[in-house]
């Protein structure tokens, strides 16, 4: 037992050192910055106490971004989960080519986000592109739709693009949950004369529910943190309509040169997510112990 403890420490030390240096220490440094008045990267400014927090919490822009982040997370969770569940159920069936499909479904996830953004910007483009000609060909619209011209459509289009990128990854993790449901349950249900719909509602859904909860949590954390797709596509525009909290943090730090205020928003976001994550990981741990 003692020897195992020493060995564990030796084996864990390098990984912990890296996480401490790249994640934990900068987080503390950020906390420190949020109590000071620094403006550009590299300076530390003077101590101002909680003044930044008062300023941020009193700022209309912060609350607007917080609301957008909330909608962003909820919309992505909904769309991703529906798409991923459909894909996972299909990949769980036996059909010719299913093993190839299981490998290649994650194609959209292995491509650099810059490329994802470029692809969709072209597909949704108002001059040429693919989506607008298709819509006009079907007679759904007379003139090209400017998907990124209005805040609401830009936001919805970004939700679609982000979910398109992530749903295959989540589908594979759902598939993991599905493949853990004992096959004899389905056999027994079939013998009792249960059709596909009954088998889904009585066996698949209840047994998959814990997995779905876990994935919903992970999906929430992942989509809250999405920055690059939004920044590269709309830079938070038009009219701030896609400026979620990560975008606001980046803008405040690197465009507004108000480092301390950016750090404050970052700390507030982290507290929010941490509260959510502590709740979530205690559930994950419980699921692990029940194994």
């Amino acid at each position: 037992m003692r020897r195992q403890g020493t060995l564990a420490l030796v084996l864990l030390a390098p990984a912990l050192a890296l996480l401490a240096a790249v994640l934990a220490w900068p987080l503390l440094a950020g906390l420190h910055l949020s109590l000071r008045d620094a403006r550009i990267v590299g300076t530390t400014g003077e101590f101002v106490g909680l003044a930044n927090y008062a300023a941020v919490l009193g700022d209309h822009e912060f609350w607007r971004s917080a609301r957008l982040s909330l909608i962003w997370v909820a919309a992505n969770a909904a769309l991703q989960t529906v798409l991923a569940l459909a894909a996972a159920l299909i990949l769980h069936q036996r059909w010719r080519g299913v093993s190839v499909a299981r490998t290649w479904i994650v194609l959209s996830w292995i491509v650099p986000t810059v490329v994802v953004v470029m692809i969709w910007r072209w597909l949704f483009s108002t001059s040429g592109g693919v989506v607008n000609p298709a819509l006009m060909g079907l007679g759904l619209t007379d003139a090209p739709v400017g998907f990124f011209a209005r805040p609401e459509t830009a936001f919805a289009t970004l939700v679609f693009i982000n979910s398109w990128r992530w749903f295959p990854f989540i589908a594979l993790m759902m598939l993991a949950g599905l493949s853990r449901i004992p096959a004899d349950l389905y056999e027994a249900a079939r013998v009792d004369g249960a059709g596909p719909w009954r088998r889904f509602t009585r066996i698949t859904w209840p047994l998959l529910a814990p997995t779905l909860t876990v994935l919903l949590v992970i999906g929430t954390l992942l989509s809250f943190n999405v920055f690059d797709v939004i920044w590269l596509m709309t830079s938070g525009g038009p009219a701030g309509g896609t400026r979620t909290l990560p975008v606001l943090i980046y803008e405040t730090a690197f465009r507004g040169y108000r480092i301390s205020e950016a750090a404050t928003i970052a700390v507030l976001s982290t507290v929010l997510l941490m509260a959510f994550a502590v709740f979530a990981t205690s559930r994950l741990a419980l699921a692990g112990e029940a194994r």
Partner: peptide
């Protein structure tokens, strides 16, 4: 749970 952007600065 880290917003990676938090540690950027």
């Amino acid at each position: 749970a880290f917003p990676s952007i938090v540690v950027l600065v």
